[in-house]
Simulated scan of single mutants.
Amino acid sequence: MKKIGFSGTLDPITNGHMWVIGEARSLADEVIVFLSQNPAKKPQFPAEERKQIIEQSARECGWDNVQVVIVKGDYTARAAKKHGCDYLIRGIRTTADFDYENLIQQTNVDVLQGAKTIFVMPPRDLGSVSSSFVKALEGPVGWHWTMKKFVPAPAYHAWILDSLRKEWQALWNYAQASDAQLALFEQWFAHLTGPQAYGGADRHYHNLEHLVHGLTEIRVWADNTGAGKRERQLLKKAFWFHDAVYSHDDEALYSSEEASAQLWLSSGLDAGDNDEVAQLIRATDHFQGPAITHRLKDAMLSADLAILGQDDDVYNAYTAAIGREYAHVEPTHFRQQRRLAMQHLATKAEAGQLFGDAFFADQYNARAIENMQRETGMLAAA
């Protein structure tokens, strides 16, 4: 077979979709993904961005015989026939899928004189994966780590950025902002999510995922404790900037936290919160932090340390990321320093002092002790 088509909204493309495209490649010399632009739907990503995500996902798999075509104002089965595809390929997960797809297939052929359909059945681990399933994951703490298991990396990165953009825009009055203010907001969003900050290639832990996690922790904390809008905004502004400057340079004139505080103070984003946000950023520094007495200090520190109380797979991914982030440090020295840090934090957790905020302590303290004791033992044995 020379060409085969695969169609859908693909918002976002999932690992299930990628599997079907892989099956198509085993049947044909060329695969064309027909990306439907349905005006009746409100997709998460515009068609051009979805096209880029699919193309990047195919490139990462080394697939050079997959192209993407956006279909506007036509049926995908008819568009496929026009592009030389006599067949479309579809994945069937359930009997309900078959009944629906069979009806569509009959319409494509009998009514539209379009491409016929080949059905394939995905493996069991992909049987429940769909775009709607992935979309439904967003929200609770750790949603991004769960989503990561079901979508290719480019789709995951795009979703993370989209989530962060919504978080960022919620902090500032975009609707009533002047052109100059809008430009400033966009400038700082690009800076913070770009290679100079959390999007940097050497940011293996203090990265966009860390930002999403902390902002989600703050939202869930506020929802459960009745914290007001101002408290949420102060904490979120501080979290956006707290690791914006992250340096391993021992010769730095001041800590990364102080540099991040200064970056915030110089940003021009002041909404009357300048000094309070700077204080919360400084609170995450082990040297300056004890001197900070801000009423939200415990919540800020707890959100930053919440990673220590996650489930095994997340905690193990976190420790591996920390190892990559400090790969420039001599391995024996790194293990020694990491073990001392974990022993110190575990001792604080055992004394009930790691999470100063009661909500976070209840959620994470016991698990954090288990995680850090396990890691300390592994570091000692290495």
Rank of each mutant, 00 (worst) to 15 (best):
Y246H: 12
Y156I: 01
V314C: 03
G272T: 05
R50N: 01
K41T: 00
Q56G: 07
Q187H: 15
D249H: 07
Y326K: 03
T284A: 10
E231V: 02
N102D: 13
K116R: 11
S260W: 10
L340R: 13
Q336F: 11
I369G: 14
Q56D: 14
S256A: 11
E30H: 15
T319R: 11
F287V: 13
Q353Y: 05
L280S: 11
E49L: 02
V109S: 11
I322P: 06
I53F: 08
L182N: 15
L103G: 13
L308G: 04
A80Y: 15
F287L: 12
S57K: 08
T376Y: 12
E375I: 01
G22L: 14
V69Y: 13
L211M: 14
G200P: 09
K72G: 03
V277L: 14
A303E: 05
Q52F: 04
S302P: 03
A238W: 12
T94S: 15
M372I: 05
K116A: 08
H333Q: 09
M1F: 11
K41G: 01
H157S: 06
G91M: 03
A349T: 04
L379Y: 08
Q37T: 03
G114Q: 11
A183W: 11
T319D: 09
V33I: 15
S256D: 09
L235I: 02
I4T: 05
S302Q: 03
Q52N: 12
L296K: 02
A278F: 03
D97Y: 07
R219H: 11
S178L: 10
L161E: 10
I292F: 09
Q176D: 15
L379A: 03
F360H: 06
I21P: 13
G323C: 01
V71H: 02
F360T: 02
P154V: 05
T319L: 06
L137A: 01
A24V: 04
S36L: 09
L263A: 07
M372P: 10
I92E: 02
L253M: 13
R25H: 08
D285K: 08
Y254H: 15
A40K: 04
N316P: 00
E325K: 02
D162Q: 10
P331D: 02
A317M: 06
S132G: 09
A153M: 12
Q196R: 14
V120C: 07
H144E: 15
G356P: 04
W168N: 12
A190E: 15
L340E: 15
Q373F: 09
P331I: 01
M372V: 04
Q169I: 03
A283K: 02
V120N: 03
F189K: 10
Q363D: 10
R338Y: 14
I281Y: 14
S57T: 06
D110C: 05
A190P: 09
V71Q: 00
V245C: 14
Y254G: 09
I292N: 09
D311Y: 07
S7N: 11
F119S: 04
Y174H: 12
I32V: 15
L126Q: 07
K116H: 10
E257Q: 14
N102V: 08
L161P: 03
F119R: 04
Q262E: 13
K51M: 10
N365Y: 13
A380F: 13
V141K: 06
N274P: 01
H191W: 14
R165K: 13
Y254E: 14
R219M: 06
L137D: 01
F359E: 04
E258T: 07
A368C: 09
R367F: 12
N15L: 15
G226A: 11
P152S: 07
Q353E: 12
P12R: 00
Q310D: 02
Q187P: 06
D99I: 03
